[in-house]
C-alpha cells in the first residue's frame, strides 16, 4: 500500500514537472536588439539623450516597444546612472540629463553616454555608447538700417577653453510650430576659419501680436557634436492682426454660440412643438384624473 502511495506521489510530481520542463524546452531564443543614442542640446542647457530601439524581423528593422534602456553618463556605474527610458510604439524614448550632473557636464569637454538593456525576456543583453565633444552655437542678430543679419559661431570646448570650429555645417532657421523654416535663401552654411557663418534675413512672415519670431541656428546630427540648437527671439516678423471674427460670432445667435445665444428660429419652432406635444400629454394625464373622479362618483 505504502509503495502504491509512493508511486502515485511520484507520478503526480512528474505530471506537475512536465509542463515546467516543456516550458523550459519551448522557450524561444532571445532576439537581438539594436540600441541607438543621440545627443540633443538647446541653448546650452543640459542635453537630452534620445534612445531608439530596433530589431530585425523578416529582413527589416522594426521598432521595439516597451523595452527599458538604462542610461549612464561617463561610465556604467551607480554614480553615472542617469535614469531608465521606456520605448514607445515607435521604439523611441528620451531622457533629460538630471541636474545633479551639471557640474560634471560643465567641466568636461568629452562626454560619454552609455545605453544598456539587461535581463530582458525577449532580447539578449545589449550595450551601446555615444561619445560627444561638447560644443555650442553663439547666435547674434544685427539690425542696421533695416538690413537684418544673422551671425552664428560654432565653438567646441577643449582643454584650452572654447575654440572656434571651422568647416562645420550649420543651418539658420526660423522656428515655427511644426518644423523649422529656412531663414535665408541658402539651406546650409559652412563656418569660416573663425567658426562663423552669417546671412541676411529677408523673410516676411507673421509673428505674434508684437511681431516676435524665434530665430535659430542649428547643427543636425553632427558626428562629433550631436544636434545643437541655439535660439533667440526678435521682432522681425509681421505683427499678427488678431482674427477675432470667430470670437465675435459667439456674441451673435449662431448654431455654435452659447445657449443664451440660440438662433431665434431654433428657439421658437422646437419650443412650439415641445409645448404642443407636452400640452397634449398633460391633457391625457388630466383625462386619467377625470376617469378616476368618475370611478369615485360611481362608487358613491
Amino acid at each position: 500500500m505504502k509503495q502504491i502511495k509512493h508511486s502515485i506521489g511520484l507520478i503526480a510530481t512528474a505530471l506537475c514537472l512536465i509542463p515546467l520542463l516543456g516550458q523550459a524546452q519551448d522557450k524561444p531564443a532571445k532576439g537581438i536588439i539594436k540600441i541607438d543614442l543621440t545627443y540633443h542640446q538647446l541653448n546650452n542647457d543640459l542635453p537630452i539623450i534620445k534612445v531608439s530601439a530596433k530589431t530585425k524581423k523578416e529582413k527589416k528593422f522594426q521598432p521595439v516597444e516597451g523595452v527599458e534602456i538604462n542610461l549612464f553618463f561617463n561610465g556604467e556605474t551607480s554614480q553615472g546612472f542617469m535614469g531608465r527610458v521606456k520605448t514607445n510604439s515607435n521604439g523611441a524614448g528620451s531622457l533629460s540629463m538630471p541636474t545633479r550632473f551639471k557640474n560634471q557636464w560643465d567641466s568636461l569637454y568629452s562626454l560619454k553616454f552609455i545605453g544598456t538593456l539587461i535581463q530582458n525576456d525577449s532580447f539578449e543583453d545589449q550595450s551601446t555608447e555615444l561619445e560627444i565633444s561638447k560644443a555650442k552655437i553663439e547666435l547674434t542678430l544685427e539690425d542696421i538700417d533695416s538690413a537684418r543679419t544673422i551671425h552664428a559661431k560654432v565653438l567646441a570646448f577643449q582643454d584650452t577653453g572654447w575654440v572656434a570650429q571651422p568647416e562645420t555645417e550649420i543651418k539658420l532657421v526660423v522656428r515655427r510650430l511644426m518644423s523649422d523654416l529656412a531663414a535665408t535663401e541658402e539651406e546650409t552654411f559652412t563656418t569660416d576659419k573663425n567658426g562663423e557663418a552669417s546671412a541676411e534675413f529677408g523673410l516676411t512672415i507673421p509673428g505674434d501680436a508684437q511681431g516676435n519670431i524665434v530665430i535659430g541656428a542649428k547643427i543636425d546630427d553632427h558626428e562629433m557634436f550631436g544636434s545643437l540648437v541655439s535660439t533667440t527671439a526678435a521682432k522681425w516678423g509681421v505683427p499678427l492682426d488678431p482674427d477675432d471674427s470667430f470670437a465675435k460670432s459667439f456674441a451673435k445667435r449662431t448654431l455654435w454660440a452659447t445657449r443664451d445665444k440660440t438662433p431665434l428660429w431654433l428657439l421658437i419652432f422646437p419650443n412650439l412643438i415641445i409645448v404642443t406635444v407636452w400640452g397634449i400629454i398633460f391633457y391625457l394625464v388630466y383625462q386619467i384624473n377625470r376617469i378616476k373622479k368618475l370611478g369615485r362618483t360611481n362608487d358613491v
Binding site: Y283, Q287, I291, L294
Partner: peptide
C-alpha cells in the same frame, strides 16, 4: 386601476384619449 368601473363615460374618455395618442405617437 381600482377607479375603473367600466362606465360609458369612462370608456368614452379612454377611447378618445387612445385616438389622440394614436395620432400623436406616429410623428413622435
Amino acid at each position: 386601476g381600482s377607479f375603473w368601473k367600466g362606465t360609458d363615460a369612462q370608456f368614452r374618455i379612454s377611447e378618445n384619449a387612445l385616438r389622440i395618442i394614436s395620432v400623436m405617437i406616429i410623428p413622435v
